[in-house]
């Protein structure tokens, strides 16, 4: 069979290579720009209005670390999820992932009772939680994806209802728990941006590092998945296998972010879409870092605003939900209109 290929350096091949180089350079520059802004905001956050350096710095430092972890976790999981579902309106949170985490946590508390848990280390509780999350996530959402002919909005609606179901059930279970048990564990369970669950920082970092290293191997295959299931398989990607692994990664990332700051429903949506718009590329190797940087900027910047400008009279998650909700509506309407 004759091969189809152009022989040695033609004009076309040369300019293509140049084009490639130029694009890469521009992508790196964009990332650097984001990193600089992020760095500046972090520096500001750490140093503004400090009275007692010995006290403020470590405390703020921990907060910054938490925001870095959460920012990365939400960004990465959202981009990955959007790729495997081939859609830019979805994120794991919209599908009810973070509500599921809260539910699992509450059920564990209900089953094991407060005393046992008070004696159990927080890290162990976290690990158990993550394990169950991974299990349920893989089962539940694989069932949803397998259905041929299930359309997208259907999935989203189901996800939202699941979110309400889990949320209601969680509140319900919380009332079923012995009030004594409940008080013991209350602060552990309700994390927020203003009260980050800082005990878990170490294990959260470990989880994120592990999961990221694991996923680096299939980052390029994810680029191909953007073309859709059929084309990905055509080009040699083991699609079903890959989606499974991604679900595991996503489950861990969402567990981390929910454990640290509670549910932030629409944040991933905003951040993933902004990253694609800003970077103008499909490559995950660039989109994921961009999304992470944008999310760190938003979190640190937002929290700065909340603390210094609004002086804690509002909550970051509320603002995010509001802006994100409107953006989601806009995307939804635009998608359906286009059809």
């Amino acid at each position: 069979m004759q091969l189809l290929r152009k022989e040695s350096g033609t004009v076309a091949a040369v300019t293509a290579a140049e084009h490639e180089q130029r694009q890469l350079r521009s992508l790196w520059l964009k990332l650097v720009f984001l990193a600089l802004i992020g760095g500046a905001l972090i520096a500001l956050f750490l140093t503004i209005n400090v009275t007692d350096w010995g006290f403020a710095l470590p405390r703020r430092g921990r907060k910054v670390v938490a925001m870095l972890l959460v920012g990365f976790a939400v960004a990465y999981s959202s981009v990955m999820f959007q790729t495997i579902t081939n859609n830019r309106i979805l994120t794991p949170s919209i599908i009810g992932f973070d509500s599921m985490y809260m539910l699992i946590q509450t059920v564990i508390v209900y089953l094991f009772g407060g005393i046992t848990l008070a004696m159990m280390s927080r890290e162990l509780l976290f690990v158990i939680n993550v394990g169950l999350m991974v299990l349920f996530a893989s089962l539940l959402y694989r069932w949803l994806f397998r259905r041929e002919g299930r359309n997208l909005y259907f999935l989203v609606l189901i996800g939202i209802i699941f979110g309400t179901l889990f949320g209601s059930f969680t509140s319900f279970m919380q009332r079923m728990i012995d009030p004594n048990d409940f008080t013991v564990l209350q602060d552990r369970m309700f994390a927020s941006f203003n009260s980050v669950n800082e005990d878990l920082l170490l294990i959260a970092s470990a989880a994120i590092v592990l999961v990221t290293l694991y996923s680096l191997r299939f980052l390029r295959s994810l680029d191909v998945v953007l073309l859709g299931r059929d084309q990905a398989i055509n080009l040699g990607v083991a699609h079903a296998n890959l989606v499974n692994r991604c679900m595991v990664v996503i489950a861990v990332l969402i567990s981390v972010s929910t454990a640290l700051v509670g549910p932030i429903t629409f944040f991933g949506l905003l951040v993933a879409n902004l990253a694609y718009q800003y970077m103008h590329t499909y490559r995950h190797a660039f989109v994921v870092p961009a999304a992470s940087l944008i999310s760190v900027i938003a979190l640190v910047g937002g929290q700065l605003l909340v603390e210094r400008v609004f002086t804690f009279s509002t909550s970051l998650s509320v603002i995010i939900n509001f802006i994100g909700g409107i953006y989601f509506l806009y995307l939804l309407l635009r998608e359906t209109r286009r059809d």
Partner: peptide, 23 residues
């Protein structure tokens, strides 16, 4: 305003709209 080809979008939009107001 938005012509929906999909009936399932309506409650979705409604819930989201409600969420935004709630937020």
């Amino acid at each position: 305003y938005a012509k929906y080809k999909d009936v399932i979008i309506v409650p979705l939009v409604g819930i989201m709209f409600g969420n935004v107001i709630g937020a």
